[in-house]
């Protein structure tokens, strides 16, 4: 776990996040059969209705939302895919019906923005810590020797507790 390790960790984290964000679920309805409530809900879960803001469509109790769910069912019966249904709803009611902004135009900013900032922070941190890798040639600080065994540890603990009593 040297400096490089952290950069690596950050990169892995970033990659994980991006793949996580990209992997949206797809539920293929078996065509021909009437869709079950669960299939409707699976699609509705990733949608919001403008009538009751910030409540996912699958659990929103208002009449308008119920009608929307019925519409999803109708479309499923017609054999539409989840993506087609999403596109239809976006066309009808605007971008805000989707639980996450569609990846187009200005909306890319939301997916990129925080990561640019975080990556900038991570690079700066990595640079700072990189310098620490070769410790400044100077007198080593006198404080706590590394814990080598139980006795050392006990001594350190006692010393710390005593110091605390003195300090505050």
């Amino acid at each position: 776990m040297k400096g490089r390790g952290w950069v690596l960790l950050a990169v892995i984290g970033l990659a994980l996040a991006l793949t996580g964000a990209a992997g949206a679920q797809t539920t293929e309805p078996p065509s021909g059969q009437p869709p079950t409530e669960d299939e409707v809900n699976a699609i509705a879960k990733n949608m919001y209705c403008p009538v009751c803001e910030n409540v996912p469509l699958d659990v929103c109790p208002t009449l308008a939302c119920q009608q929307w769910r019925d519409q999803i069912r109708e479309k499923l019966i017609e054999g539409w895919t989840e993506e087609q249904i999403h596109d239809y709803f976006v066309l009808q009611y605007g971008d805000r019906v989707l639980a996450a902004p569609p990846r187009s135009g200005l909306n890319w900013l939301i997916y990129i923005g925080p990561w640019v900032l975080i990556a900038a922070g991570a690079i700066m941190l990595a640079r700072l810590l990189w310098r620490l890798r070769a410790p400044a040639a100077g007198p080593e600080p006198p404080p706590q020797p590394p814990a080598n065994g139980p006795d050392d540890y006990r001594a350190r603990l006692e010393a710390e507790l005593k110091r605390r009593d003195l300090k505050d």
């Binding site: 403008p50 009808q92 009611y93």
Partner: peptide
């Protein structure tokens, strides 16, 4: 506003509304 087409048409039918009607696409 924020409606489904089937039910909207049924509503127009029920009240026999003849003036131009249309969906609020994208709630614009």
């Amino acid at each position: 506003y924020a409606d489904t087409e089937t039910l909207a048409r049924a509503y127009l039918e029920r009240f026999q509304i003849t003036y131009p009607n249309g969906p609020d696409l994208g709630t614009r």
